[in-house]
């Protein structure tokens, strides 16, 4: 699971008012290099919850992202490289995503989050 995906995921358990961001429990993190797509990075920068993104990257052990960022930083190739790396190349391979309100753990195995709810959570 990429941090891109983590920034989109939200706990949808019945009764949860704010299921975002899910807390990350990281057991295994891997890196998979991909080609950079500037348009995509710019597009996603506007949508990302930056704080959640930075916190998530740190929970995967990556500490290169600044606490705050604004669109002008997209001009810097150094920033873009880090942004790209954290957004798309880091993968939570094993671990869990934890609902911020209920503490319910959604497992992540072999890179795949299982976000299915139990009957009584729907």
């Amino acid at each position: 699971m990429r941090l891109l995906t983590h920034n989109m995921l939200s706990s949808n358990i019945k009764g949860v008012a704010n299921g975002f961001p899910l807390r990350i429990v990281a057991e295994k993190v891997i890196e998979k290099p991909v080609e950079m797509n500037h348009d995509f990075l710019k597009n996603m920068f506007a949508k990302l919850d930056w704080k959640a993104f930075v916190d998530a990257s740190r929970s995967l052990g990556y500490v290169e992202l600044p606490d705050e960022a604004d669109a002008s930083m997209l001009e810097s190739s150094e920033f873009l490289n880090k942004f790209h790396h954290a957004l798309l190349e880091l993968h939570l391979e094993e671990g869990a995503l934890v609902c911020p309100e209920t503490g319910r753990k959604f497992p992540v195995n072999k890179g795949i989050p299982n976000m299915l709810l139990h009957e009584d959570e729907v």
Partner: peptide, 21 residues
């Protein structure tokens, strides 16, 4: 996932996604 796609297990009737992402 074995084909290196970014995927998750979720129910299309109840997507665990933020709105408008």
């Amino acid at each position: 996932a074995d084909k290196d796609h970014e995927v998750l297990v979720a129910d299309a009737v109840n997507l665990p996604y933020r709105t408008g992402f």
